[in-house]
């Protein structure tokens, strides 16, 4: 059920990328697709009643193997989140330049090569 909701979030992002004309909305939709994929990986790593993979002082390290959630997808998604920020920043910079050149965010009006 939760996986299905995650997939619906991804599909809403895909709908926005395919159908919307406004560049800002396309950028937001791409960021949402990124968020949905990250969330899906973290959902796969969850264990029922699991704790965060952090040791308290005086705790036996071997107890994490029975109680903790999976740390590897968290470490990889951490990278992915930061790279998503870089992609968003680059796309917004391009959108600002396009607005300066054409005076609109509408992708159907950005036709002529001028710049």
């Amino acid at each position: 059920m939760i996986y299905t909701l995650c997939i619906i979030l991804f599909l809403l992002g895909l709908y926005g990328v395919l159908v919307k004309r406004n560049i800002i909305k396309i950028i937001i939709s791409l960021a949402m697709m990124n968020n949905a994929v990250n969330l899906f990986l973290i959902l796969l790593a969850y264990r029922s009643n699991g704790v965060a993979p952090i040791l308290d002082p005086g705790m036996d390290p071997s107890i994490l193997l029975e109680t903790s959630v999976d740390p590897l997808p968290q470490a990889l998604v951490l990278t992915s989140v930061v790279i998503g920020l870089g992609v968003t920043a680059l796309m917004v910079a391009l959108a600002i330049r396009l607005y300066h050149a054409y005076g609109t965010f509408d992708i159907t009006k950005i036709r002529k090569l001028k710049g």
Binding site: P53, D56, V69, D70, P71, L72, P73
Partner: peptide
Amino acid sequence: FGEPVFLNFYSSSVYYLRDGFHLTGAPNIV
């Protein structure tokens, strides 16, 4: 939901969780 696929067999996640603290000294495995 609630059954981690990566922990069911011998994987690198198991290695990190079991030996991560001894090998690196970091209490936060991530």
